[in-house]
Design a protein around this nucleic acid. Structure first.
Lengths: 132, 132, 132, 132
DNA sequence: GTGGTCTAGACCACA
DNA sequence: GTGGTCTAGACCACG
């Protein structure tokens, strides 16, 4: 899986890395049980600090996306992904609300926005079939 | 218009303030041409430093949501809101993609997500009618 | 002579007013000896504060563009315009340098910039003939 | 690169600093990809507050002259300078018009003004060759 | 009284 | 050590 980091982005590197791994899982290019590079090798591959990769893995583990085995190393959680908890729904609302509000301000219709979401779903889920 | 700030949030205060003003515009509780409190009074109302409010206003001004009239003070842009530019669409995609990806990971169906968006649209646009 | 003020501009009103009067003189729509409205009437015409017009007139007088007679009121200096002093050349350099530097940065050729200046000269001087 | 600030000038410090960095880029003494001092070190070198330098950098970043690399720090935009957009041309006109008008008022011929611009171009572009 | 600018000093997230 | 954020307090230009 190819990872692209933008060193000029306002998003911290560890966040970009997290997002891309989650997108990888969503698209199926990273399958449950599949192993991820060690902290050291990932860091040297990407040319970033150990701490940065470490933080990414720690957060992904906390949320239940990955497991860190002492022997097998880092793997995508083979028992499946975290559930849709109330806490998650709350976070989701908090993330979406300002985005939707700005879209409305700029005069984007509900349909326009829904179409963008659908396209995004298709684009990601499409890869899913190919990769399974 | 009532503004609520969470001083424990990871989001900077000026971002929270920006979001709430944009939501206020989207919901119609802030109408184009309407004036906003001065930096100083807003700051003292919210119990934050005037520089924090100043940063919010500066950013909203740059994006075209508000403008600073030398006589009327700070007002919601009476000429309407910023357009849906290519730049904005790019930003929108960047904001939505990780959110959609995580939703897919957690097994949320496309319809579930679309429903959440629709509800959010309705909730905001509903206030719009009331306030007009 | 029509004066347009932009209340949203970053330039102070008195500066905009000054610039437009100078442009009026340059284009010939304001002739030496011609009289300008009194501070009070100019202020009420434009809907601005007395102090603002006063400041404009004071500055124009200091630089020699206008005279303030106790009886005739405010007139464009009938003895002609201020000279090209060393002080003025210094100011001119200071104004042009950052503008030229940014143009070069953005890859504007010398000819492109000179063409813009020539066009501007023509546009202003053209009015001059019509108005004389 | 040597930077000179005039603490008595009517121009804000952050504007003077901005102008000089842009002039530095135009003259080639600051090359694309080259890194700039950190906010703190620049501030202490110049004897100004770090927020002042910060504002300069923020503005230069917004206009695309520099970018903040998470590893290399602040660098002159290696992908080249911002383009000549319609927005920029509008700003340029607004900056030049009052300057040209005053020059005409004072009886400066078109050729005199063009010569000044050419000299300025040569002076800046001359350094460019030496520095490349 | 308004926004704009500047200073001083502080904490935090990031790498 | 870096930039980003926040606070407190000050002066000035503007209207």
């Amino acid at each position: 899986m190819i990872i692209r980091l933008d060193m000029q982005s306002e998003l911290p590197i560890y966040t970009q890395l997290m997002n891309q791994i989650i997108e990888g899982i969503a698209s199926g290019s990273l399958q449950p049980g599949e192993s991820l590079p060690s902290v050291r090798s990932m860091a040297s591959d990407l040319g970033v600090n150990l701490h940065t990769v470490n933080k990414t893995y720690t957060l992904l583990k906390q949320e239940g996306f990955i497991l860190v085995h002492r022997q097998k190393g880092v793997v995508i959680n083979p028992e499946g992904m975290p559930e849709i908890t109330a806490e998650y729904e709350h976070k989701l609302h908090g993330q979406l609300k300002p985005v939707v509000a700005e879209a409305i301000c700029r005069g984007m219709s509900q349909d326009q926005l829904l179409t963008i979401i659908k396209d995004m779903y298709k684009q990601i889920a499409h890869g899913r079939k190919e990769n399974i």
